[in-house]
Each structure stands twice: as C-alpha cells, then as structure tokens.
Nucleic acid binder design. Structure first.
Lengths: 251, 251
DNA sequence: CGTCGTGTTGAACTCAGTCAAGCCAGGTGG
DNA sequence: CCACCTGGCTTGACTGAGTTCAACACGACG
C-alpha cells in the first residue's frame, strides 16, 4: 500500500522549488504568482507501480510531479496497454484536470514519486479568474497536443529503430531542460516493457533494437542510467530533427 | 489555383448557421455570444487538394470549416505523411491558433471546402476577455488531446482491421452528431491513401482490409458514400466500445 | 537457496509492406 | 465517337519487419 513519506528533496514551500516554473508557467511568459502557489495543499509520496489516477474515476485533487517518473496510459479491453506519455519531475499529471474531474486515461508511478497536491476546484477557480493564467494554460495544452501529434507520427510512420532512438532523444532533451541530465547521461528507470508499450512494440523487439543501438556505439545503459555517446549521429542515422515539433512553434 | 466562390449552402451570417454551436461552444455550456459571431470576417472557398495552412507559416486568420472535409497532417523529411485528424463541417481548423501564430502541422482540403474566416487576434482577444469562453476553449482542447490519445492507442496497439473499423465508426459518430449522416450511411470522400496515412498503413493494405469488411457484410462504399450495415457487429468483432474515450469523460 | 522480475537469444511464424501488372470510370482531345 | 490519359482500386507473388513462444541467464531479495 501507499506509504506516505515526504521526499527528502522536497522543499517545504514553493518559493524555493526549482521546478516551479515548469509546472504552471511558460518560461518568463507569466510572472510568478504567490496566490497560486499558496494553493498547494501539501505533498504525497507513493511507491513505484502505485496508481496515481485511474481512468474514469472522480478526482478532487490536482497533482504535480515533484520527484520520480510516472506515465499516462490506456488499457484496451483485452489487456493491451498503450503508454501515452511519460511524466518527468516538473510535469503536471494532467492539465485537463483544470476543467474536468474525470479523464480518459490512467496514471501510474514508474519509480517512487513525490507529488505536490492542490485542490482541483480552488486551482481551477484561480486560473479562471486570471486571464493571463488561462491563456498560459491553453498554451501548455497546446504543447500536449503537439507532443501527441509527434508521437502519432512516430507510431504511424517510423520504424522500430527510429521510434526507440527518437524517444531516447526526447527524454534526454526534456530532462536537460529541467536540469536533470548530466551531460549526455541521464536517469533511465524504464523497463523494456514500458518502451514497448509506449512505442507500439513488444518488449522482445525493444531488446533487439537496443542491442543494435548499443553495438553501434550510440547508447549504453547501466544501473538505470542511459548515456548517449553520439546524439548527433543518432539523429542523422534515424532521420530526426534537432528540435521536436513539440517545441518548434509553440512557445 | 484557389478559386474563391461562396458555397451555396453558406448562410450570410452566423445567426442561421446550423453548425454554430459546434465551433466555439460545448453544447449548452456557454450561451451564444453575438459579439463573438460578429467577428467573422467572411468566408472563403477552396478546391480539393488546396493547402489551407502550411506547417510553420505565419497565420493571421482563424478558420472554421463550414462545408467539405479537410485533414491535418505532418510530413517527415523523407516524404512519409501522417494524417493527424480529419476535419469535418463544424470543426475549427485548429483551436491552437487562438494562442499562437505558427503550428507544427499542415492542413489540406480533402474535398472542395468553404471556410469561415476570423481575425486571429481579434478572436483571441475576445476569448481572453471572457473567462467562460476561455474555460470552454480549454475543454475543447481537452477533447483534442483525448482524441489524439485514442488515435495513439489505435496505432500502437490495434491491428489493421481494428484501426480501419474504428476510424469508420468514429467518422460515422461525428457526422451523426452534426446531423450530416443519413441513418447508417454518410458521405465518404476519403481515398484509400488517406486512410492509410491516417492509420499507419499502406493504401494497398487498406484495400485488402476494406475488401474483408465488405465481404463480411459490414460496410459498403458506393459513389463516395459509405453505408454501415451492422455497426454493432463491427464493434463486437473488433473489440471497440460504444463510445470513444474522446467523449466519454470530457464534457 | 529458491523465486521473481527483467533482459537476451533463437526459431518459427505472420501481418503488413513492396513491387508490379491490370482494371475501371471519368475526362480530354482528336 | 473513339483513342488516350489519368487517378484510384484490386490482385498476385514475394519480402521483410516485428511477433510469438520458449528457453535460459542473471541479479535482487526474502
């Protein structure tokens, strides 16, 4: 069952939180807002594999991922699973909770996680009352749409090797932006089953693809850390652009 | 080149437009708003295959599809195409233009189309000034995210037959909601290449799958009209739910 | 020490892709 | 009126990327 321990890294208030600007604000677009931060009710820690939200259930809280990784996913009736996205420290569990209390996907902790907890209603009311925050929220949702469109293109039109390479590059980029990568190396808690479920592949095939990438000297994985030895060559080999569509046009 | 003829079906003002409530309002959630409708600058008609918007270009207008079909798509450098979604009468070309002037996908007319044209800036300003419209816009974007997540699950985890069946059922549902289906039959201007590019398949394989669906007596297609002979059996055979995730939880 | 979760490898298989030919309806132009 | 295109659909033969099933390795953990 869900232990509830505060993460050692979690600050007691938002003022000193290094991830703050990722959660509600597009960098620099909206000024910090003490009233909004004051709405934080507390934090919650959950162990790996815990369910953070289950599809269709009523949610009265709004979560933000402070530490650890999680993922959004859907199950189809026969048990197949599609991972929709990975959530990294600094991500909201979903902006959609701002406007609705039930969603179409579930969320599971991938590692042990610490969440910041807000009252959904209070937060929604606050955002509604400030048109700059609303506009900002729309932009953040726009980013989600762009990210989903990128993934769609991946699954529809790219080979297994391209998909795996692309996902690794994306994760690296996102972690870099949050200051959570150390150069070319970053934490990589994913099982091959997760990669497969995100990319529309079987875990077995992911294993073979990773073997290829490793033997080409592009990546190595040790003790849940991935190192990118030649990101540029990987991009070239697998026909991927420097920047993802996700970030290219949407502020 | 783009002819510019008014559609015979297009009303001269929004008051009598039967599609109005689909474009900006979730049914009944937001009252009609004369000021918003007054922002319509006019209309534009384009022939099939015309480019409505090209990825990365600056847009100063906001479009709404009044008549005909269109689709959003991305090209990857080697020429492969992924269709992200089909736009039906009553759809906005993209809500994202409300908050940004460049997007990550292109839009092409699939049939001859008529568009309603608004000034992007004026519309954005108006929506920003009314918190109910902003909240509503966020909900509409939420629907897009849910739809994208559904498509992702399709491409990642379903077979070719399931994908084709599902897309047909979805189109039927959406057209029904807009009063554009006649019972089990509806306009179907898609080439098999479009189906393939939307579903991550080749046109050749789409042809084979459709042959199967036809010979099972589930659908028939004649003169750009599709008839669903047994939607219920099709759903059962291909493991699909009555309602799509898109609509189930998001108002 | 056994068990569990995870990853690796091989062999057989299959779904979907590729390539190529032919068909058909509609449109154009002689 | 016929000849000829053109774009889209169908079909067959072959290929191949990715799946399935099964065995085994290995480390963590109780």
């Amino acid at each position: 069952m869900a232990r509830a321990l505060a993460s050692p890294r979690m600050p007691s208030d938002c003022d000193s939180c290094p991830l703050r600007r990722h959660v509600f604000y597009l960098d620099g677009v909206v000024d910090d807002d003490a009233a909004l931060l004051a709405l934080r009710q507390g934090c919650r820690s959950l162990p790996a594999k815990a369910t953070i939200y289950r599809e269709g259930e009523l949610a009265s809280e709004y979560f933000t991922l402070f530490d650890g990784w999680a993922f959004r996913y859907k199950l189809i009736p026969d048990g197949r699973r599609q991972i929709l996205s990975f959530l990294l420290p600094g991500d909201a569990v979903s902006f959609l909770f701002m406007r609705t209390d039930r969603l179409h996907f579930s969320v599971q902790a991938l590692t042990d996680v610490s969440l910041c907890v807000f009252s959904r209603i209070a937060l929604a009311r606050h955002v509604t009352s400030r048109s700059d925050l609303s506009a900002n929220l729309e932009r953040l949702e726009g980013r989600e749409i762009a990210a989903a469109d990128d993934r769609l293109t991946d699954l529809g039109r790219r080979s297994a090797h391209e998909r795996v390479a692309n996902l690794i590059l994306q994760l690296h980029l996102r972690l870099q932006q949050r200051g959570l990568a150390e150069g070319d190396s970053f934490p990589f808690p994913l099982r091959q089953q997760h990669l497969g479920d995100a990319l529309g592949l079987t875990a077995v095939h992911v294993s073979r693809v990773l073997k290829d990438l490793k033997s080409e000297g592009l990546v190595s994985i040790e003790r849940e850390r991935l190192t990118l030895h030649d990101a540029e060559r990987m991009r070239r080999l697998y026909g991927l652009n420097e920047r993802s569509g996700t970030d290219r046009y949407l502020l």
